[in-house]
Nucleic acid binder design. Structure first.
Lengths: 209, 209
DNA sequence: GCAAGTGCATACTACCGAGTATGTTGTGAA
DNA sequence: TTCACAACATACTCGGTAGTATGCACTTGC
């Protein structure tokens, strides 16, 4: 039964709406301040609909978290393989990451919250496993940047910095977008691109040889 | 009556313990997941003690927030007036900020949460006013950095960057410490200094002329 | 056309947590 | 010594919320 609910995750009927709405609520009010009824009301539905797909509020949150991570990977991984030195590829990855943070503000805000929850007391063993999975995914994401950073150091395009600290600082500067970034009413893709490139340029110039 | 409770804020009897413990709880579990009973239990006391000093959970949170901001100001403002070019002073300020983030991890984690709450629905008009105050204080803190950034651009020690975006990115890289930094068991002041300087150096090198 | 399941809504329960009302004990001033 | 008040503890209330049990229309394979 629970396994069925898990599998429903990626089919695109009412589920995508639930995920999107839940992401909005979690972004605005946080996990524990958001009630299932809040999400349902915003959907124009009732709890029944949500509990039909998700067996608990925590599971719903985790699924939003997972979707947020998937979107980050889909944004960053493709540009990871482009031609160029380490610094060129890293710049492209960071820019893609920043763009994804803005394009999926709600989901990525949940991802940021999820990082905070790493120490959370996940009630059921099943949830604990899911949480550990998410932590591992997050680590893998960070290691993408560390890897290219290292390659940049090796090919001489990046200074000999502390990989781990530099990665955390750069990703921090970008992730911090989820704290202060709010889409302007008449904002275009080009505006976001400009913003992303300015942030990334500062970070890149801090480590380039 | 309420005014009395406000005034008690800075006397140092049991109040400081409440503030410290509350900061710990808010850091670990977040605002809404933390119950007053949680804080009381951790104090080895009961709700009565807390409600004797604070009229609501929100007020307690705001007071922790304010204390966190005060500590940041006390760390950064003194070094703002040192001798040197803009880039030299900015480096000192950022380093002091990073050190304060680590030294007061619990309080600063609450400050970060407070930023998220800017859109919160503060119930009473009194709380709304307090929240607006905190927002203003936060703006003033950010403007300290913007000011020195501008002076650095003017005296030629800093490149001609977008002041607002650069400030947010640099502060973001440092504030992100509250997400991933956890004090190591045998950590010394020197260790933290080393970490702070590495993060700050990357940021400074990104904007220096 | 019917049985079995899907996709919800409705109607509950049980509990937790914020805030309150009311003790109780110490303590300093007069 | 006593009175007033501070500094809590104890014992409640009551609204909100996660989760459940059940009902009900609608579809789909057979």
């Amino acid at each position: 039964m629970i396994e069925n609910r898990r599998q429903v995750r990626t089919d695109g009927t009412g589920n995508a709406d639930i995920l999107e709405t839940a992401a909005q609520c979690f972004m605005e009010q946080g996990f524990s301040a958001t009630s299932i009824d809040d999400v349902a009301r915003r959907l124009g539905a009732t709890k029944g609909r949500i509990y039909h797909y998700y067996s608990s509020k925590t599971d719903l949150f985790f699924d939003v978290h997972r979707e947020g991570m998937e979107r980050l990977f889909q944004a960053v991984e493709p540009v990871m393989g482009i031609e160029g030195t380490g610094v060129v590829r890293l710049r492209a990855m960071l820019t893609a990451h920043a763009m994804a943070m803005m394009a999926n503000a709600a989901f990525e805000a949940v991802v940021v919250q999820g990082v905070h929850m790493h120490r959370m007391a996940a009630t059921t063993p099943d949830q604990r496993r899911t949480l550990d999975d998410l932590i591992a995914i997050r680590r893998r994401f960070e290691s993408l940047f560390k890897q290219v950073l290292q390659e940049g150091v090796d090919d001489g395009s990046i200074r000999n910095v502390d990989i781990s600290i530099s990665a955390k600082a750069m990703l921090g500067a970008i992730n911090w977008l989820s704290v202060w970034y709010r889409p302007a009413p008449d904002e275009t893709e080009a505006d976001r691109q400009m913003l992303a490139e300015r942030i990334v340029t500062t970070q890149i110039d801090g480590i380039r040889s």
